[in-house]
Structures are given as C-alpha cells and as structure tokens.
Amino acid sequence: MKRLSTVLYTTCLTGLLVACELPPRQHSGEKQTADIIRTSASTEVDPNEEYVMVTTAINMPMYVNHDQAAFKKWGAARGVKVSVLGPAEWDVPAQIETIEQVIATRPAGLLINGTDPGITQAINKAVAAGIPTVVYDSDIPGSRRHAFLGTDWYQIGQMQGEEMVKLIGGKGKIAYMGILGLTNMEQGFQGLLDVIKKYPEIEVVGKFDDKANVETAAKLTSDLLAAHPDLSGICGFDSNSGPGMALAVKEAGKAGKVKITTVDWEPEHLQLVQEGVIQMLAGQKRELFTWYGAQFLFDMVHSTNKLSANDAQIGITNIPHTINTGLIKITKENVGQFLKR
C-alpha cells in the first residue's frame, strides 16, 4: 500500500512537472512583429470598435486635461468608442493588472502610458495577443510595442539645466526634486546634472523626492531655503513640483530671487510664470501623444497605408516606430499666448 502511494505521488509530481510550461526566452534579435495583428480589411469605421488607454494616476489634472481630453476628442472625431482605464494612484503594478485584464477583452487597440520599464511584460502580452499597441509619454525600449510617441526626458533635464545656468549667471547653489526612482525622471535628473557639471561654480545641494505632492514640494523647498538662505535656484520634474516650490518661495518673500524652472504647463503653472515666481516651464506636447497615438492604432487596425502585400508576415508595421513630439519652452515673454488658449 505504501509503495503504491509512493508510486502515485511520484507519477502525479512528474505529471505536474511535465505540464509545467516555461516562459519563452527573449533574444535581442527577436522579430518585432511576428504576431498576427488583428486588422480590419475594411476602411469603414465600426462604431463598436474600441480603443483603450491605460494609464496610472488617472485623475492627475495634467493627464485629464491633456492626454485624456485629446484621446476622447479623437474618439469623437473618428466615431469610435474610447475608454480610459487605470488606477487612481500612481500604482504601476495596478496599471499592469489593468492592461492584462483589458487584453482579455480584446479591444481594437491599446494606448499605454509608458510609466515604468516594469510594464514591459504586459505590453509584450498585448502584442502577442495581436492587439496593436502604442506606448506614449516615456518609451519602454525593451518592449515589443508597435510605436512610441513622447518626449525625451533627458532633453527636459538639459533644457532646465541650460536655462538655470543663464538665470543664475553660471554660479550659485541649486537643488532639484521630482519622484525618485522613476526611470523617466532619473533620465531628466541626469540631463540636468550633465549640463550643470560643466559649471564648477554651481553647487548642487541636493536631490529630493516630492512624491508628486504639492505640500511635500513646498515643505522641502522651505526647509531648503532655511538650510541654504543663499539658494539660487530649484528645478522641478513632476507636475506638482512647480506649484509647491513656488508656494514656499512666495511665502519666504523670495519670489524672483530664487529662480525656478519646472515641467508642465497647467493653468496654475502658467499663472506663476506670469507672476514672475516661476521663470521657465519645459512643456510637453501631451495632446499629440494621445491624438496621434490613437490615430496610429487606427491606421494599423485599418491598414491605412499598406506597405507590402502582408506587412505583419515580413515583420513590419505601417506606422512610425518612434516619434519625439518635442518640447515647448514657456517663459514670461510667451506665456500670454498659452494663457489665452
């Protein structure tokens, strides 16, 4: 009896091990579009055709006012269904879960905010499922996404560095803040530091995590001003850095004396530029990310521009691979044009 149960256990265990399926190995030279992409032979628009955007921190004003607004506008203009999904907080694993659940519902196309390289597997899953997949904002280079549209964050850092050097006359103490640990922001920090290191008279007094929170950014800035009364400038890298830094500088009565450069151009940011509290904004053309991102998906689904008899079979797509949408430099000189928009 004992021997029989041992044999049974061993058989079950062996059976389970045999049934175990290992993940595929990824090779650098992997064919990009070997999967069968679900396309429509017709150029006619099906009103049930659905395009889904998956992001994180879905209620962030910058995302709502720019990315989501442009995506919804595109959907209305094209006469197709559009949905915006994702967690309310900055939660990358929850974004991944949402992507994976959306894949199971087979939308016509997926527009994904490239929040972190950790979403690579989820993007690859969507591509493997035959869903046209476009990444926007930050690229996920290790993924098999069909296209990317966005800004080069290194350039954002460079733009801020070059402007800060001009504003403080190439000398003095500066600090910078953003969300530490995010790949795109770390690239931005590097761009800033690569410019600053050419100026030995500029001292970087610290790198701070404002956790994309206005109150935290304000508190960090007021602490910085207390510790370094001779602080010349601060650079911000997330949407809430600018308003927080500006609040603390205004409260300390140092508006205009402590120079501020930051990212994004929400009405609050623009107002602060006009007041002279913030000196420069490195703005992204976010509307273009999602409008053209969605259009690329549509063009893939409808084979708008057929490049060969069978694009997928020979491993090509009929849309651009990488698009840098560029940056907008907003200063007191041109801010009026943006406020009037």
């Binding site: 939660d91 950790g118 530490l180």
Partner: peptide
C-alpha cells in the same frame, strides 16, 4: 514572485 512575474524590480512595488 512579483519581481519575477514582472521581470523587473521597482522601488514603487507594493505601494499602498
């Protein structure tokens, strides 16, 4: 398990 599932380690994992 989470980092091996994602094929990546992130400092933001497990937030909340």
């Amino acid at each position: 398990l989470l980092s091996s599932r994602l094929g990546a380690a992130m400092s933001t994992l497990g937030r909340g």
